[in-house]
Design a binder for these strands. Structure first.
Lengths: 216, 216
DNA sequence: GTGTGATAGTGTTCCTGTTCACATGGCTCC
DNA sequence: GGAGCCATGTGAACAGGAACACTATCACAC
């Protein structure tokens, strides 16, 4: 569906990337626990996956394993972090500082993986101009300028659905190439902009569907 | 991967369900705009999908369309709402009232689709015992009892990863069959419990991966 | 009442991702 | 230094979802 731009690496399934992220988290834990090596089998059963899948996922990016041994935890962790771009700091712009926006901002899980919300945009005059934890809240019109100055690379859309497309358009115009959208709308963005949607309604309604099935 | 319990309806792809949810939202909008009928083609291009896919998705559940015309907006909307179980009210338990938990609670998008957070659980003594917007915050130990009394059907897990599995176990023990998990952990639940994960780190790291690719 | 046009429903094909199974190759122990 | 072990890496089979193309059917015009 999404025609992928031509990367060095030929054709990585989306699902592989998502699993890479999961593996990384697991390896972080294993390293903390002092585990030195881990086999694809062990890794697989933690997420009830197939061990072949784990190996194939990793093999897309190189030969990280040692036959007869498995994978060295810290080595693999470092590789995956590099592949996922977690070895650097990304400057993130958060647009919308309502309930969801402020929760995302206060959620400390991001920072420690290199995602830094360095500026917030919100047109509400009650909010714009203030500062939270040293991060300025600015009106949306300053986005283009700030994007350059702060080298913003990721935009998080946490505004009401009606405003989401307009916000996305401005993020794109400001040269941002990666958007995480929380608004329950399908945004239209150019092909070279990577869009990731998180739609809470869909998740809940999927649950609701299954409940409705069993109770029918 | 997920061995599905045997429903009346034989084999609905997960992706179909998710799209159903999207169609429903679109139909709601169309109805508001006074549109009477819509073709699979029109519906498809709003989400850049294939029209055949739209038709197939809908045909899983019956023949809702009229050849030569399309689908009647309000009729189809009602059908989809019924299929998704949105024609009734679900009682939802929110576990964890930290940043994310309270944002979810305050997010008004849920209620209007029939998802009612009727009780919150949090063991923090600062919170337990209080009431927000008429909804009680209770210690986790009261879960089992409340689940029965309030007929809770959906549990939302918004606690730190370390506590998530324990919470899930208690939700399962309390007879809850549908869990929406926001903790960045893979939870283990029995096969008859439907688990839906929302993992913000994965989404961000997917973006990060693509950014890292293009900038290499 | 009949013809025409438009669009739903569906069998088939295609393609992508998952699983299987085996051969490859490094490590260890004798 | 050689033999055996054991887990990786990978080509091939398999499965499931998406796209295509065709057929059936309905509404409306004449």
């Amino acid at each position: 569906m999404t025609p992928r731009p031509s990367f060095k690496i030929p054709k990585i399934p989306e699902m592989t990337i998502r699993r890479l992220s999961v593996y990384t988290r697991c390896l972080l834990q294993l390293e903390e626990d002092g585990v030195k090596t881990v086999s694809s089998e062990e890794l697989a059963e933690r997420f009830n996956l197939n061990s072949a899948q784990v190996r194939k996922d990793l093999a897309y990016f190189g030969e990280f394993g040692v036959r007869g041994i498995g994978y060295y935890v810290s080595g693999l962790k470092a590789e995956l972090q590099r592949i996922l771009g977690l070895d650097r700091e990304w400057q993130v712009a958060l647009v919308g500082f309502g309930n969801l926006g402020s929760a995302l901002f206060n959620y400390k899980g991001f920072a420690h993986q290199g995602f830094r919300i360095s500026v917030i945009f919100d047109d509400d005059p009650q909010k714009a101009g203030r500062t939270v934890d040293g991060v300025p809240i600015l009106p949306l019109r300053e986005l283009a300028q700030e994007a350059k100055g702060r080298n913003l690379q990721i935009g998080i859309v946490a505004v009401p659905p009606a405003a989401a497309q307009a916000v996305a358009d401005r993020l794109v115009a400001a040269g941002i190439k990666a958007i995480l959208n929380f608004a329950p709308t399908r945004l239209k963005v150019p092909k070279d902009v990577r869009l990731q949607n998180v739609d809470l309604s869909i998740e809940l309604e999927t649950l609701s569907f299954y409940l409705a099935q069993v109770s029918r």
